[in-house]
Simulated assay, not measured.
Amino acid sequence: MVEDVTKPALILVGPPGSGKSTVGREVARLLGLDFKDLDDDLRAAHGLEAGELVVELGRERFQELEVELLRSVLVSFDGVLALGGGTPTAPGVAELLSGRPVVFLDVDLENLLRREGLVPLHPWLLPNPRAHLRRLLVERRPIYESVAHATVPTSGRAPADVVADVLEALPAAAS
């Protein structure tokens, strides 16, 4: 069976707090599609937030669960999908995303630290969120860029402006 790389219609990647859920919901609404957040599906399936699952299970097992879920979603979901911040770093994910419409929502450290609720949602950031996030951004940016067909900056921008840029990038992401 040949895999349908037109599903989902759009995949958003980026660090935690980059706006994937906010932007994804609005893009989905404007396109008349459903929105799915992979972290929400993980929570529903396992009863814990993504950050708590990482602490509970360890990163390797958590990533195995993420990849299993992602494989399933990629063949069954046609809407707008937001991946967890670390999902693109899991083994095999770059290959799963190849040829699909992926947009990287890029955010700088200062804006990331200003985003409300980030630290409580991600306990592995403690005790020094600034240092951890700086390292995370440096390590993950090349991965996000390598799996995405377009990059949209979100720092200091209104969600509506980011949504407009994502919609504009969509034809480029799908080609």
Results as ranks from 00 to 15, higher is better:
Val2Thr: 15
Thr6Gln: 15
Thr6Val: 11
Leu10Ile: 10
Ile11Phe: 04
Leu12His: 02
Gly14Pro: 10
Gly14Thr: 10
Gly17Met: 01
Gly17Glu: 01
Arg25Val: 14
Val27Met: 08
Ala28Glu: 08
Leu30Glu: 15
Leu31Lys: 12
Leu31Pro: 09
Gly32Arg: 01
Leu33His: 08
Phe35Glu: 06
Phe35Gln: 05
Lys36Ala: 12
Asp37Glu: 10
Asp39Leu: 00
Asp39Ser: 00
Asp41His: 11
Leu42Thr: 03
Ala44Thr: 13
Ala44Ile: 07
His46Met: 02
Glu49Ala: 07
Glu49Ser: 05
Ala50His: 01
Ala50Gly: 01
Val54His: 01
Glu56Tyr: 08
Leu57Arg: 11
Leu57Cys: 03
Gly58Cys: 04
Gly58Pro: 01
Arg61Leu: 12
Arg61Ser: 05
Phe62Gln: 04
Glu64His: 05
Glu68Tyr: 02
Leu70Trp: 06
Arg71Phe: 01
Arg71Asn: 01
Ser72Phe: 06
Ser72Pro: 01
Val73Ala: 06
Leu74Gln: 04
Ser76Glu: 15
Ser76Pro: 09
Leu81Lys: 06
Pro88Leu: 11
Thr89Asn: 12
Ala90Phe: 08
Gly92His: 06
Val93Ser: 04
Leu96Cys: 03
Leu96Thr: 03
Ser98Cys: 08
Ser98Ala: 15
Arg100Phe: 03
Arg100Val: 02
Arg100Gln: 03
Val102Arg: 02
Val102Met: 04
Leu105Ile: 09
Val107Asn: 02
Leu109Ala: 06
Glu110Thr: 08
Leu113Thr: 06
Glu116Thr: 03
Leu118Phe: 00
Val119Phe: 00
Val119Asp: 00
Leu121Tyr: 00
His122Arg: 09
His122Ile: 05
Leu126Glu: 15
Pro127Trp: 06
Pro129Val: 03
His132Cys: 04
Arg134Asn: 05
Arg135Trp: 07
Leu137Phe: 05
Val138Asp: 13
Arg141Trp: 08
Pro142Thr: 11
Ile143Ser: 12
Tyr144Asn: 12
Val147Gly: 02
Ala148Gln: 05
Ala150His: 04
Val152Cys: 13
Val152Glu: 12
Thr154Glu: 09
Thr154Phe: 11
Thr154His: 08
Gly156Trp: 06
Gly156His: 10
Gly156Cys: 10
Arg157Lys: 14
Arg157Trp: 09
Pro159Leu: 14
Ala160Ile: 11
Asp161Glu: 15
Val166Glu: 11
Glu168Ser: 13
Ala172Pro: 00
Ala172Gly: 06
Ala173Asp: 07
